[in-house]
Amino acid sequence: MSPQSGGIDVFIGTVRDATKGKAVIKLEFEAYVPMALKEMEKIAREAFYKWPVQKLLIHHRVGVLQIGEVPVIIAVSCAHRDAAFEACRYVIDKLKQTVPIWKKEIFEDGEVWVAAHP
């Protein structure tokens, strides 16, 4: 929070219990940590450049997560809500494209690395 901030947009990702109608037991996240941090910083810098962002947080967990737990949080504070919404959306969308983090879905009958195969 800061006195100039008029709006804080927070995105909280949570682990769903199903994907494409199939029950998910839990998720496992893996990261190439040094490069992930570097790519996150690039995304943050882009957000600060494109919008009048005052404060920005990108948080991502690794390891095993149970249903309902929180793997990712993005928080952006700006003077006005439009910028906060747009910047927050930009950051989570870009994180999903460039940050080297991988999600494995664990089912009753096996596990799948998301997006690995066409």
Binding site: G13, F29, A31, Y32, M35, A36, H60, P71, V72, I92, L95, K96, Q97, T98, V99, P100, I101, W102, K103, W113, V114, A115, A116
Partner: peptide
């Protein structure tokens, strides 16, 4: 050097 398969963070 690292091989980066399709990422799926978030």
């Amino acid at each position: 050097v690292a091989i980066i398969p399709p990422v799926s963070g978030g």
